[in-house]
């Protein structure tokens, strides 16, 4: 049990039609913790992640970030869905990196990064640009500020996308298979950036098939199947000596 979790998922349930995608998921994540979320395709990893910033609406249960229910406010013991503005305000604190990068195609790398801080946080441009250049440096793309996404490789785009999320100074970063769409030789650069982030104490939840990354960088590995958490624990334990047959099965198949 974590005394003061930064992220707390509580009996989260979500179905599409008759298919239960998340079945009463509960999960606590401490500040600074790096959690790998693994599991077979269709097990509900993306859905869980998307519920964490209310891109998806759950059927029941809730997600708390820093004690606040995401997408809802508590009134008389009921959770009322937040209006657009308040929800947007909450999302500032929750960074998200997508499998398909989703960089704004009509903006340069730098513009992608500063769009949020200037347009949403209303910070002064000069300050934001300086911070953005620092972030570009961090992800190793200092010289690519004025390139459009279509002029960048997948790996470069994903690193810009990470910088864009970081520019909002989020308290937690969600990664949904950040390297799955990349050519193998580009995966390393992105994982390198994520490793750096983890080293700096960022709270991260990473859906990934990169078992090596999970083993070396993550504090905890959570294995999901069929909308439930089957098993979780230290990477060494879950990945090397899994208790459950399903985990063993899954690991055998992807390794």
């Amino acid at each position: 049990m974590i005394a003061n979790p930064l992220v707390s998922v509580r009996t989260l349930t979500k179905s599409y039609g008759h298919k239960v995608v998340l079945n009463r998921i509960s999960l606590d994540i401490a500040e600074g913790e790096v959690v790998a979320l693994i599991g077979p395709s269709g097990s509900g990893k993306s859905t869980l992640l998307r519920c964490m910033n209310h891109l998806e609406r759950q059927d029941s249960g809730c997600v708390l970030v820093a004690g606040e229910p995401v997408g809802y406010s508590l009134k008389n013991g009921e959770l009322h869905e937040l209006p657009d503005r308040a929800l947007s305000y909450q999302r500032r604190g929750i960074g998200m990196v997508f499998q398909g990068f989703n960089l704004f195609q009509h903006m340069t790398a730098l513009e992608n990064i500063i769009e949020g801080p200037i347009g949403v946080l209303k910070l002064p441009r000069a300050e934001v640009e300086e911070k953005a250049r620092h972030l570009l440096d961090l992800v190793g793309l200092a010289d690519w500020a004025d390139h459009y996404p279509s002029q960048l490789s997948g790996g470069q785009q994903q690193r810009i996308a990470i910088a864009r999320a970081l520019a909002m100074r989020p308290r937690v970063m969600l990664f949904d298979e950040p390297t799955s769409a990349l050519d193998p030789e580009l995966v390393g650069d992105v994982l390198e950036v994520m490793r750096t982030l983890a080293g700096e104490g960022m709270t991260m939840i990473v859906v990934t098939h990169e078992i090596g990354f999970a083993r070396e960088v993550c504090d905890r590995v959570v294995f999901m199947a069929d909308g439930e958490i089957v098993e979780q624990g230290e990477p060494g334990q879950v990945l090397s000596a899994p208790v459950h047959e399903r985990t063993r099965d899954f690991l055998r198949r992807i390794l």
Binding site: L55, N102, Q105, V120, A161
Partner: peptide, 25 residues
């Protein structure tokens, strides 16, 4: 769709997303 989701995830409101991300494209 991903463009909208990315915009929402950096805290843009629906209106701002439409004006800054969807319409220009």
């Amino acid at each position: 769709r991903g463009q909208v989701e990315a915009a929402r995830s950096v805290g843009m409101t629906r209106f701002r997303t439409f004006r800054r991300v969807v319409m220009p494209q």
